[in-house]
Design a protein around this nucleic acid. Structure first.
Length: 577
RNA sequence: GCGCCCGUAGCUCAGUUGGAUAGAGCAUCAGCUUGCGGAGCUGAGGGUCGCACGUUCGAGUCGUGCCGGGCGCGCCA
C-alpha cells in the first residue's frame, strides 16, 4: 500500500520534472510514517531535497506535486503541504480496512517477499569449540544467528545454517589432557592441583602432592563436566586407559560427548544445523596446503623467525599474522581462511558470520585473505554482537570462563524456558550489550514479562474463538465479512500496525537486525491487549452479527501477524496459557 | 598506547537512506474499574540524547576532538 503510493508519487514527480525540462534522474521517493497522527498516514520530504536543484521554494514544489498527483486513483483522501515542505498524505480509510481480509488470505505467507529469490545464503553461527557447555554468550550468538536465518528465509533466501568447530589444534589436546588428569585423579594415580593454584595463574604449580604427580594442565578446563566425562571412561574401561595419551581416546571421547551435549542444548531452544563442519576435514582434503600455496603465489606469504607469515600489512591491516607456527602446526587463522574459501566454492551468494565481540579482530584478516583469493568481500559479511551480562536482584552475576563458573544456556533455559530465553536474547540490537534480567525473565506475570505479554496477546485470539464457538460462531473466511465495519480509531490503528509488518520484516532482514521483530511484536501486543480489555467500546462478540463477523476477521488477522512474528523469533504461539 | 563497539527518562532499552513537539517497558504518583482471561483501564511527572565544535533548510542520527564504560591487540581459539 505504501509502495503503491510511493510509485504514484514517483510517476507524478517524473511528469513534473519532464515538463520543466529537467533531464537529470528523478530522485527516489521515500515515505515515512510520521510520529504525530495529525501529520497523516505517510509523509514525503522529496520537495525539500529538490529545492536547490529546481531553484524554487520547497513548499511551491510540494504544491505542484500534490496537484500533479491528484487522488492517486482513489488511494489518497488528502494531501497537505506542511512545515518547511513536507507533503502529508492521509489515505482513504477503506484502503486500510481492505487489508484485513488480505492478511487473512495470505495467512502464513503474509510478510513474505521475494527479495532473496534464487539466492543461497549461508549463516555460520555458534561455532563454539566442543570444550564445554554453551555459555550465555554462545546462547546469544545462537539465537541471533537462527533468527537472522529465519528472517532471510521469510524474504525468500535459501538458507544453510552451519556450525564450524576446531578439532585439529591445541585446544582439543588440552581438553583431552584435562580429562585424562581427572581420570587419573579419580583412580588415585594423580593428585589434583591446589584450589589456590587453579584460581590464580600466579600461584606456584606443584609437580607433585602427597606422593602423587599433578598432571592436570596449567591451562586445563576446570569445569565439573570434565570429571563427569572422566567418570564415564572409568565406568567403561576401568584402569584400561592409564597408558593412553591424552590426545587419543580421552580427547575423542570428550569431544564427541561435549558436542552431543551442545547439540542437545541447541535442540532444546529450537536450533538445528544443516551442516556441522569440522576443521579436521580441511586437513584431510589438503585444503590448508592449497590455501597456503595460493596465498604464496600471490606474494602474500613469507617465512620469518621459523614461522610462516601472512603479509596482512600488504592488505591494509595493521600487522602481519602467523599462519604456520615454528612447530609446523598451523594457527587457527590458516584453517579459518581455508574454511571460508571452501564455503565460497560451495556456491553461496552470500556468507554471514555471527561472531562475539572477542572474535571480531579475527574477521578482517579472514575477509582480506579470502578477498585476495578471489571472493568479493561484500559477499562475506559479519554480524558482531557484544556480550551478555546477567542481572538478578539488582546485581550482576559474576562469570568466568577460565574457572567455568559461567552461567550455561542449559541452566538459563531450565529456569525460564526456551521461549523466554529466546525472546530476551533477541530483544537487543546485536552490537549493544545485553543485560539479561533474570528476575523479569522468571516472572510469570504476563503483564510484566514481555515474552509472555506477546504470547498472551496471541492466546487471547483463541480465547475469543472459544468464546465465539459457545454461541455457534466460527472464525470467518477472508471474504466472509465486511472490513468497512472496522471503523473505530483503535481498529484503524491496529490495522495500520498489522500492515506495517511486511516492511518491518524486510528491513530487519536486510539490516540483519532481528530485534526489530521483538519490538514490533511488543508494540502490536501493546495495541491488541488494551483493545480487548476495553470490552465496552468495541466488544468483539456483540448483538450486531455483521459487526461481530468483521471483528472476528480482525481477530484472525491479528493472530496471523502475531504467529508469524513469533515464529520469526522461534518463539511458540500458544493457544492458551 | 592503538583498533572496534557502546553512551538517550530513576532502571533496561527502541529510535527506519538526516525530518516536524525524542518514544516503549519496568519503577513512581493520581483517578477510574470487578473484567470476552488471572487484577486491569486512563492519565501524569520524569530528558542540556556523555561534552564541544563542525557539515545544512533541518542532527539523537553524519564528521572531527575530548570524557566515560566494554572488548580486542599471542607462534591461544
Amino acid at each position: 500500500m505504501k509502495q503503491e503510493l510511493s510509485d504514484q508519487i514517483d510517476k507524478a514527480l517524473r511528469r513534473l520534472l519532464e515538463r520543466s525540462g529537467d533531464t537529470e534522474p528523478s530522485p527516489s521517493v521515500a515515505l515515512d510514517t510520521p510520529r504525530r497522527p495529525e501529520h497523516g498516514d505517510f509523509a514525503c520530504n522529496v520537495a525539500m531535497g529538490l529545492a536547490k536543484r529546481l531553484g524554487q521554494a520547497p513548499r511551491a514544489i510540494a504544491e505542484s506535486l500534490v496537484a500533479e498527483l491528484g487522488d492517486a486513483g482513489g488511494l489518497v483522501e488528502s494531501a497537505d503541504v506542511a512545515g518547511p515542505g513536507f507533503i502529508n498524505f492521509k489515505l482513504d480509510l477503506s484502503a486500510w480496512q481492505n487489508q484485513v481480509p488480505e492478511i487473512l488470505r495470505k495467512g502464513s505467507l503474509y510478510g513474505c517477499s521475494d527479495e532473496g529469490a534464487d539466492k543461497r545464503v549461508q549463516v555460520e553461527f555458534v561455532s563454539a569449540n566442543p570444550t564445554g557447555p554453551l555459555s550465555t554468550g554462545h546462547g546469544r550468538n545462537a539465537v541471533l544467528g537462527d533468527c537472522t536465518a529465519r528472517l532471510l528465509e521469510k524474504v525468500g533466501f535459501e538458507v544453510t545454517r552451519e556450525y564450524y568447530f576446531n578439532d585439529g589444534g591445541r585446544q582439543m589436546r588440552v581438553l583431552g589432557e584435562s580429562v585424562k588428569a581427572r581420570y587419573l585423579e579419580r583412580l588415585g594415580r594423580a593428585a589434583s592441583p591446589s584450589p589456590e593454584a587453579l584460581a590464580d595463574p600466579e600461584t606456584a604449580w606443584l609437580e607433585e602432592s602427597e606422593g602423587l604427580p599433578v598432571v592436570f594442565p596449567r591451562d586445563g578446563y576446570q569445569g565439573e563436566y570434565i570429571g563427569g566425562i572422566a567418570q564415564d571412561l572409568i565406568d567403561q574401561f576401568g584402569e584400561g586407559l592409564i597408558h593412553e595419551p591424552g590426545d587419543g581416546q580421552f580427547r575423542d571421547y570428550a569431544q564427541s560427548q561435549i558436542f552431543a551435549e551442545i547439540t542437545k542444548t541447541l535442540d532444546s531452544i529450537g536450533i538445528v544445523f544443516d551442516v556441522n563442519f569440522n576443521e579436521k576435514s580441511l586437513y584431510d582434503r589438503g585444503l590448508l596446503e592449497r590455501t597456503l600455496e595460493d596465498l604464496r603465489a600471490l606474494g602474500l606469504v613469507y617465512d620469518a623467525e621459523g614461522a610462516v607469515w601472512l603479509a596482512s600489512t600488504k592488505m591494509d591491516l595493521d600487522r602481519d599474522r602467523v599462519l604456520v607456527k615454528g612447530t609446523g602446526e598451523p594457527t587457527y587463522l590458516l584453517p579459518d581462511i581455508a574454511y571460508h574459501c571452501d564455503k565460497f566454492s560451495r556456491g553461496f551468494d552470500q556468507m554471514i558470520d555471527v561472531l562475539g565481540a572477542d572474535h571480531i579482530e579475527q574477521f578482517p584478516f579472514v575477509q582480506k585473505a579470502v578477498a585476495a583469493l578471489g571472493v568479493n568481500p561484500d559477499q562475506l559479511e559479519l554480524i558482531m554482537h557484544q556480550f551478555v551480562t546477567i542481572t538478578s536482584q539488582g546485581e550482576k552475576v559474576k562469570q568466568s570462563t577460565r574457572r567455568a563458573t559461567f552461567v550455561t544456556v542449559d541452566e538459563l533455559v531450565e529456569q525460564v524456558g526456551s521461549d523466554v530465553f529466546r525472546f530476551f536474547m533477541i530483544e537487543r540490537k546485536p552490537e549493544g550489550h545485553l543485560d539479561f534480567d533474570l528476575d523479569l525473565a522468571r516472572d510469570q506475570n504476563w503483564r510484566k514479562n514481555p515474552a509472555y505479554y506477546v504470547q498472551y496477546a496471541h492466546a487471547r485470539t483463541y480465547g475469543i474463538e472459544r468464546k465465539a464457538s459457545e454461541v455457534g460462531l466460527s472464525m470467518p473466511d477472508h471474504d466472509a465479512f465486511d472490513p468497512l465495519r472496522l471503523d473505530q480509531p483503535e481498529e484503524i490503528q491496529l490495522i495500520q500496525k498489522l500492515v506495517g509488518f511486511s516492511e518491518m520484516v524486510s528491513r530487519a532482514a536486510s539490516t540483519r537486525e532481528p530485534h526489530h521483530v521483538a519490538y514490533y511484536l511488543r508494540e502490536l501486543a501493546g495495541l491488541w491487549n488494551p483493545y480487548l480489555q476495553d470490552g465496552v467500546r468495541h466488544r468483539v462478540l456483540s448483538d450486531d452479527a455483521a459487526l461481530t463477523q468483521a471483528r472476528l476477521g480482525l481477530v484472525g488477522a491479528v493472530r496471523v501477524v502475531l504467529r508469524e512474528g513469533l515464529s520469526l523469533l522461534g518463539v511458540s504461539s500458544p493457544e492458551r496459557m
